[in-house]
Each structure stands twice: as C-alpha cells, then as structure tokens.
Design a protein around this nucleic acid. Structure first.
Lengths: 349, 349
DNA sequence: AGATGAAATGTTATCGGTAACATATCTTTG
DNA sequence: CAAAGATATGTTACCGATAACATTTCATCT
C-alpha cells in the first residue's frame, strides 16, 4: 500500500495542470497525443485513480442504489438481490445490499447512514416490512426527503413511494383452488407469523378463499411457526399431534418452500406417503423444488419481474418521473408432483 | 425530495458558524445547551445530515469493505456474505457486495471502481477464483497498491495477500474414507468443472485418496457437469448410462450439495433406492441437507469461521498488521442418512 | 509578416465538510 | 473592578477533484 496519490501529485510530476490530468482521465479529445501519453505514464506509474468522494462532492452522482432486506440467506431474497444487481448494472448503477435480519426493525442509524452516503435511491424488499413495528413507514418517509424509494413486497399499509406488490389474492387462491379441484376438503396452512402483517395477510387470504369455497376454516388447521424448514417440521408435528387422525387435513399449504420442505420431512417421518396421504404446496419456486421427493408444487410470485420494475421505476423517478405509484403482479402456480393428480385422490371425494 | 441542504444552510439559518454545526452533529460537549438546541431544531427541520463524501474527503475513512464473489444465489456464498456482513458490522464497518457470476473473470472496471471508491479493504470469496483465467492474481496485485486484500477460497496459486484456505485434503479424504469404511469400493465423483482450478483440485484430491486406499481410479467414475442440481442430474445420467450395471459405482461424492440433490433425484428416477443401492455425499452442509430424503451426508468447510478470520485479519492489516499470511481450516464430515450404515452394506464386502 | 481562429493548456472558484487556531464571552478571584 | 482562566463560538485553510473561463500556442491565410 503506497501513500495515497492525488491529482496534484500527477499534475506536478507530469509537468501539467490538474485540468489536463482530468482531461486525460476523462478521455477528452482535446489533449495532444504527446501530452496524453506523458500524463498517462505518470498515472500508470503511481496507479492513480480519482477519488469517487471528491468527484461526488463536485456535482457528481454516487450511481448507487441501496437495497434493504431481511437477508440473502433466504433464497427468495437472494433472487431479488441478484436481479436488482443485474438490472441496476445494466443502467450503470451499483446496488449496495444491507440486510437487517428477519425480525429486526429498520434501524434509524441505517437510514442515517444511507442518507449520509447520498444513495441515488433505496429499494426495500421483503414481506416482513409490512409490520407496523418494522418502522418501514417511518424509514420511507425519512428517505423520501432525499431520494426516491421503491418497495417490493406484498400489499400492506399505504406507502407514499413506488410500490411493487404481488397479488396476494392470486397467491392464496391458486393453491386452494387447485387442491379443491383435486378433491381436497380439509386444507391446512402452516408457517409464517401472525405478528408480521404480510404473513398474516397471506393467512387471511387463505381463509377467505376457503370460505368462498364453502370449506371450514378450522383454527386447528393454521399453525404459524416461522419461515424455515425447522418451522415446517414443528408445524406439522404440532398440528397433527393435536388432532385425531380422522380430522387430519389431507393437504397442506406452506408459507414458503423451506417450510414445505420441513413439513415433508416430518410427514414422512410419521409414516405418511406423499402425495398419497398428504398433498403439499409451497411458495416461491425455489431452486430445490424440482429436486425434492416428491417434486414440490409451488407458487411463483415472479420476484424477478417485480424487482426489475422496481429498479426501472426508481431510475425513472430519479430523472423526475413519478415518485409514487403502485404496480401489482399476479402469481402463478407451478404444478409438480407433491399434490398428485385428481385420480390419486378419488377416495377423498 | 427537497433541495439538498448543506452545513452552510444550517449554520446560516441557526445563526451560528459551520464549526458549531459540526460540533452539534458530532455531539461535542463544549456547545452551550441553548445553542445546541437551536441548531438541532434547524437540523431536524431540514432533515440535514452531513455528506459522507465530504467527510471522507476531509481525512475520513469510508469504513467499507468490498466483497467480490461469484454470486449470492449459491447458498454457500450467501452464508459467506452474511457472515462477513455481520462480522464487519461488529467492528463498525459495512460490507459492499459485488457479484461477477460463476464464469466471468474479475473485470478491470470493477477493480477501478473499488479503488476509486476508496474501499478500506477487499474480500474475495470463491473457488472459481483459483483459475488463472479469472484474473485474480492481477486484481489482487492492483488492489494491493491501495488496500489490504483477503481471499477465502481453496488453496491455489500463491497470492501475496491474506489467504484463508480450506484444507482440500481433509475435504477429499473424509468422504472417501467414510465410504471405504462402510465397505464401498467403487466410488464416483461428480460435478465441478475441470476448467476451474479449484474444482479440478478437489477432483485430484479425491483420486489421490482413492489410490491411497488401493482403489481403482476409473475415469468413467468422474464426470464434471457444473455446480447446480441440474448438473447433478446430468452427471448421473451420463455416468450410469455409459456403464454396464455391474460396473456401476456403489457410492457417489458430489462437488456440492446442489449437485448431490440433482443426483439423488435422477437416481430415484432410475429406480434406485437410496441409500441402499447408492450412497451419496455432498459438500457445504447447506440448509436443505437434513430435510431431503434421505437426509444428506455432507462435508462442512466451515466457511463462517474462515470468513470471520478473513474479516478480522483484513481489519488488522488496515491498522498496519500483516498484509500477507495464510490460514488453513480443516473440513468436517456431517454424517446423516444418505450413506446408510455399515450394516446396510454388508453385501458389498 | 501579421492577423485570425482553432487547438491545447492553465487558473481558479467550487463542492460540503472538518479542525486547528483565533477570538469573544463569561466566571472567578484577588 | 481588572486580570486571569475557562468556556463558547467564529474564521479559514484544506481535503481531491471538476469545469467555466482565461490564456497561450500553433497553423493557416491574405
């Protein structure tokens, strides 16, 4: 690590003014070839490159979008991040990721930090944000004084910013209808957390759909145990052990694919055959879905598309476009093996 | 978005000098309570916060570490990133993630950008870096002129920086010995890519170990088809369809857990029972390992520990500590169901 | 050769902060 | 009450770059 070298050092050593160095660095054509070469040699010799901070101070942009999410260890968010990164890059921007964990509110310090660092925009991702306790509304309000904000999440409270929502109605309706059409009448819902608005909303959508089909919405068929595979295991154990065998559900809808995975494990452990004895539907269409046994039927919320829209709208907003709008994306059901076929369920009729 | 407000605006409106504003912001005790309050009110009213760029320009650090890796969609790297983020945060630093994809060399522009942005250090992660074609050596050399560098990866070429390696010997030996002890004699290795130094090294370590145990290292037992589940599927299909049934391996070691997952799927599809007809060992101990069927035996490289060391050493280096050193971490075998037990394999003896 | 205009390069104010140093305002005390 | 010392606040050079504007150099043409 050599001492830091500034544009003045280069200018002095090359025997030119700083303006000429700037011109050489910027590739401005008005520099004589001989001068350019001379300066470039000095630049190379010292591995000089201009300070982004100084450039930014002098009227520049940071060309950076901040992305705030629970965490990238959840493959769903990893997909969102990767998409945002690629989309931003295509527009000449960088994305800086900040993860705050699945249960923490958005800290005021983080908001401060990002304002101080003069991000060109902020992207939120995550269902968790919907909670009032998350402080999302406050964070958005504070950011909005300084930069455009986009939120990729399920619909929740009204937010005065760019909101890209997934359609929770289709997200609940699709799997319930599918199971109903296959003959299922006792359908359970596991995972998520009633404390978090998003996940409870999804639960509500599920219940509404059941009622619409004239099915019982037995509270025993609803266990919220979080977002990971271990939670899925626990949910199944708790639900089935609290119920006489004849009242067991014949199908389970999981909050996400990890929860479904854990549920499948536990069900097998209890000696059930999948999908014959229990149908399962996950959510998020994660990479492992086609590879587990049975291959997992799931709901795709199309986070990539939503994220791309969010990035684009954010950049449009930067250029003076709409600072506040709402877009909604429908979900799709990806049918694999974990629900079997109608045929396999004849006996349920 | 209001017009950007500077320290001068605050000073003027509060009727004090900029120095006083700085003092209030920094919480310096020498400001009279009345003044502090007056200034704070103006700050709050305008949602003012000092520009990090200006602060950095004036002697400050960026308190930012850059992390360069293939991509966070691979759960192995997601773990590494999350660990680095947490560890850095504990020391008051932020981590900025840059992903370059699994097959791209490290671009010169990225290196430039990070030098321009005056990162306080760079962290590389990923086996892929080991390839000469990746340009890792050049990138490290360029960074080293400006900041300390740490690399978390398998051992590869000599790098003049902080190198945190996993022990490929234990990584190969552990699964092979385990399978051998269970009675397996025909052991295959799938996944990875011979073009990438790391993965071919792991393949070599595997072969060496086979030879050490006096087993044949049949090239038909080695198929490299990449890093994901789909590659695992392909590998199994290609390997088994090219071999008469009696020469089929009785165990497969996969490059990573995703590859193992794909392989399991394909094996089941071909009617094999797991683990009775085929034992499988993965690598990375990813979250889904305990939940697939059968639960996947795997190797844990302990990326978290390595990453924590890397971050710590990087920060030590910043303070003038060693800029170049090498640490090596042994791997562990995590035994689950996918190899069965010795008993189950009696017939193999 | 001298005028003219284009091309190449230099000078300097500016961006938004910080902190060393200077100054002004209070207490305290003989 | 004046002097001394402590406390609070102000002034200003500087950090590293950029770009508007000024100046110099050079080729071209009458």
């Amino acid at each position: 690590m050599q001492k830091k070298v500034t544009i003045y050092d280069i200018a002095r050593e090359a025997g030119v003014s700083t303006a000429t160095v700037t011109r050489v660095v910027a590739g401005h054509p008005s520099v004589k070839a001989a001068t350019r070469e001379k300066v470039q040699r000095v630049i190379d010799a010292h591995a000089y490159s201009p300070s982004a901070s100084a450039q930014h101070l002098e009227g520049g942009q940071t060309r950076t979008l901040a992305m705030i999410m629970p965490g990238v260890q959840n493959p769903y968010f990893a997909r969102i991040y990767a998409t945002a990164y690629a989309e931003a890059q295509a527009h000449g921007y960088y994305v800086w990721l900040f993860q705050i964990g699945e249960h923490n509110p958005i800290s005021g310090e983080l908001v401060d930090e990002l304002i101080r660092r003069r991000m060109d925009g902020v992207l939120f991702a995550g269902g968790i944000w919907s909670t009032r306790r998350s402080g999302l509304a406050e964070a958005v309000a504070r950011f909005r004084h300084h930069m455009p904000v986009a939120v990729v999440c399920p619909p929740s409270m009204e937010l005065d910013c760019i909101c890209i929502h997934s359609d929770l109605v289709s997200c609940s309706r699709l799997p319930v209808r599918h199971l109903h059409a296959l003959g299922h009448r006792r359908i359970a819902y596991i995972g998520g957390s009633m404390q978090l608005e998003d996940t409870s909303r999804r639960g509500e959508g599920f219940l509404e759909e059941l009622r619409a089909l004239g099915l019982a919405d037995d509270p025993a068929y609803h266990v919220d145990t979080g977002f990971d595979a271990e939670g899925g295991e626990r949910a199944v154990l708790r639900m089935l052990s609290g119920l006489p065998r004849k009242r067991w559900p014949t199908a389970i809808i999981a909050f996400n694919d990890q929860v479904a995975l854990g549920a499948m494990r536990q069900l097998k452990q209890m000696g059930l055959r999948l999908p014959e004895d229990m149908a399962i539907i996950g959510c998020d269409n994660q990479f492992f879905c086609p590879y587990v046994d049975p291959a997992l039927t799931t709901v795709d919320l199309h986070p990539e598309e939503m994220t791309r829209s969010a990035v684009r709208e954010l950049l449009v907003a930067r250029e003076g476009g709409a600072q506040s709008l709402t877009l909604m994306r429908e979900a799709s059901l990806i049918v694999r093996e974990s629900c079997g076929t109608a045929l396999g369920y004849r006996h349920l009729g």
